[in-house]
Nucleic acid binder design. Structure first.
Length: 242
DNA sequence: TGGTTTGTTGCAGC
DNA sequence: AGCTGCAACAAACC
């Protein structure tokens, strides 16, 4: 059940495995498990929703998709996609996509695109948005090449906060409003992180899966929109369709 | 109860 | 070539 902040949290929770040796690797993921055994974890980080473990010469990428989950130092009943055993402790992933990335992660990822990364670049995001003016806001926010880590909840909540209709064209939005969208995608992600950490995310949702607009007190509209075909929750009164 | 869902990929068809 | 729509995957929730 992952958006960027959830994986960010996972990265923190697994930091103690850095420097440790993988004793055993198994699971139903279609990768060469034998490559992992005996390797030391050099680095653990994430790029958006990608959980990444750098080993010597290659990295393991785990994506929890829509239904994935993980357990640290415990197991679930179901068969794991990837189960890593260390001398002390274990790390298990379920219903996840697992891939090997050759080489160093810095060769594969542009960290400026991760909304929660120190290297996040609002300027780079704005440049990408301006290059695609016909894109509608809901698709733009879910574009991992622009806003890595943003998922459907962050999309809906960000648009509600800045009062932008999900079908607003990026090219039609005033420059300050576009900058606000870029800023809020990051700011909201960090608030999401803290709520998630405390287990109080749901009660802070203003639009996503809600019935009534907390500003206008009228029914929120819900529709599956855009090329991404994800559900949007929005207020037709206070969210502007530029 | 079963429709829905914090996601992505691959492929057919145009 | 590049797009779009659809199926597939898979599991917890209300």
């Amino acid at each position: 059940m992952p958006e960027g902040p959830t994986i960010f949290l996972l990265t923190q929770e697994t930091a103690h495995f850095v420097g440790k040796k993988i004793v055993r690797a198994e699971g139903k993921a279609d990768i060469d498990m034998a490559r992992l055994a005996g390797k030391r974890v050099l680095e653990i980080r994430n790029w958006g929703k990608h959980f990444l473990m750098q080993l010597d010469g290659f990295a393991v990428r785990v994506h929890l998709l829509l239904f994935g989950s993980y357990r640290i130092n415990e197991k679930r009943k179901q068969k794991p996609s990837l189960a890593l055993t260390f001398a002390k402790g274990e790390l298990n992933f379920y219903a996840s996509s697992v891939k090997i990335i050759e080489g160093n992660l810095d060769e594969t990822y542009d960290w400026r695109g991760d909304v929660m990364a120190d290297q996040w670049s609002a300027a780079a995001a704005l440049k990408k948005l301006r290059a695609a003016p016909a894109t509608i806001a809901c698709d733009a926010l879910l574009d991992q090449d622009i806003f890595a880590g943003v998922g459907n909840i962050i999309k809906n909540e960000t648009l509600f906060r800045i009062r932008v209709h999900p079908q607003a064209r990026v090219g039609g939005m005033p420059a300050p409003k576009l900058r606000e969208m870029v800023k809020q995608a990051r700011d909201y992600s960090f608030e999401f992180l803290e709520w998630k950490r405390k287990g109080v995310l749901k009660k802070h949702l203003l639009a996503h899966q809600q019935k009534t607009c907390p500003r206008c007190h009228i029914a929120l509209k819900t529709a599956v929109l855009g090329k991404t075909r994800r559900r949007a929750y929005y207020c037709t009164r206070c969210q502007v369709k530029y």
